[in-house]
Every structure is written in structure tokens, then in C-alpha cells.
């Protein structure tokens, strides 16, 4: 079992198998994140491919002071943004018919998935901060690095996102008369 730093060293020397092993543990998490950010599943797959290829090509510039996952997410965020710029029309269509890749990937359709609400209510950056915090368990410092923002900005915007989502969740609970609450509290 090779450590992450060993795999990075070998990948920097040009070993594709070492890089493949290195990113294997992050691929599904990255794809899940990109599905929430892209207009279609095909776009999310393209963004994942671009992210991994860019990471491999520019691995020489990776600074070990950062966590490798933070660096990968930073590249993924940039790729998602680039794809979004190219597909603004598709995103507008998505807003109308509400059947984006995120909705298609949700296994349990019995209740409203809060990430769908988050996608609708939050800006891209705030959504990403909330996702990295609660879906990926990243620290404030890593989220700030991935978003290229300050820690204060990250904290304040996470708070803003949480407040919006908490209101949305409470409103949904009120509407369903507590059924939603029971589902989530087990």
C-alpha cells in the first residue's frame, strides 16, 4: 500500500498507473460534485476528464503544503465554471424543465433532496462552499483555498447558505406537516 506522497512522487516522474491509483479514491466524489454543477451528465463526465488530465499535466506545480483533494477540487471548480460559460443556454433550459443531472442521480425520490433546493437557492460559489463542507467534510481553510477566497469570506457565506437552507427546510417541514422531519430524524 503506497502513501499519497509516494504516489504523487511517482506520478510527477510520469507514471500514469501511479496517478490513476492516486486519484481513484477521489473520482466518484469529484463526479458527484460535478453532477451538481454541470448542465448535463455528459458535461460532468467531460469536466471530470478535463480535471484529471489537467491535474496530471500540471502535477509538477502541485504544492504539497495543500491537501491533494483541495488541489483537485480547485481544478474541478475551474472546469465546471468553464463548461458553464459554454453552456449558458442549456442551464437556462434546465431551470425551466427541472430535470438536470442532479435530479436524475438522486436515488430516493420519496422526499425533496435538499441539494436540489440548494442548487436553486444558492449562488455557484456559496453552493460549492456548502457542498465541500457538508458533502466532502472539508475544513474552512481547505474550502477557502479551493475557492480562492479568504477564510472570513468562506465562513460568512457558509453561514448565509445555511440560513437560506434552514429556512427552506423549515418551510418544507411546515408544508408537509412534519412528515419530512420524521423521515430525516429516523
Amino acid at each position: 500500500m503506497q502513501t499519497e506522497s509516494e504516489l504523487i512522487r511517482k506520478a510527477k516522474a510520469g507514471s500514469v498507473p501511479a496517478f490513476t491509483t492516486l486519484v481513484a479514491r477521489y473520482r466518484e466524489g469529484l463526479l458527484r460534485f460535478l453532477v451538481t454543477r454541470c448542465a448535463s451528465f455528459a458535461d460532468a463526465e467531460d469536466a471530470l476528464q478535463d480535471t484529471l488530465v489537467n491535474a496530471y499535466r500540471y502535477l509538477d506545480s502541485y504544492d504539497p503544503a495543500w491537501r491533494f483533494s483541495t488541489w483537485l477540487y480547485r481544478i474541478a471548480i475551474r472546469n465546471a465554471l468553464r463548461l458553464k460559460d459554454h453552456h449558458t443556454v442549456q442551464l437556462l433550459d434546465l431551470a425551466d424543465n427541472q430535470s438536470g443531472p442532479l435530479e436524475q442521480c438522486i436515488a430516493d425520490q420519496a422526499g425533496r433532496n435538499l441539494w436540489v433546493t440548494a442548487r436553486r437557492e444558492l449562488s455557484d460559489e456559496v453552493f460549492t462552499a456548502v457542498w465541500l463542507r457538508y458533502a466532502e467534510d472539508m475544513s474552512i481553510k481547505d474550502i477557502a483555498a479551493a475557492l480562492e477566497r479568504s477564510s472570513s469570506w468562506t465562513k460568512v457565506n457558509l453561514l448565509r447558505g445555511r440560513r437560506l437552507l434552514a429556512s427552506a427546510m423549515e418551510a418544507a417541514t411546515d408544508e408537509t406537516g412534519g412528515v419530512e422531519e420524521e423521515r430525516n430524524c429516523g
Binding site: V35, L114, W115, Y134
Partner: peptide
Amino acid sequence: KLERRLKDDAGRIEVRISPELDERLR
């Protein structure tokens, strides 16, 4: 409740790397 719900709902988003995508990435 919000934190728990966000974690649970993230787990409900099912994605997997298909063999075709795996081959493409390689």
C-alpha cells in the same frame, strides 16, 4: 438537523464511474 440532512442527501446522489468512462479516462 440541517447538517445531518445535507450529509444524508449527498449520500442519496448516486453516481458511478462506468467502464466506458473509466476506459476514456485511462
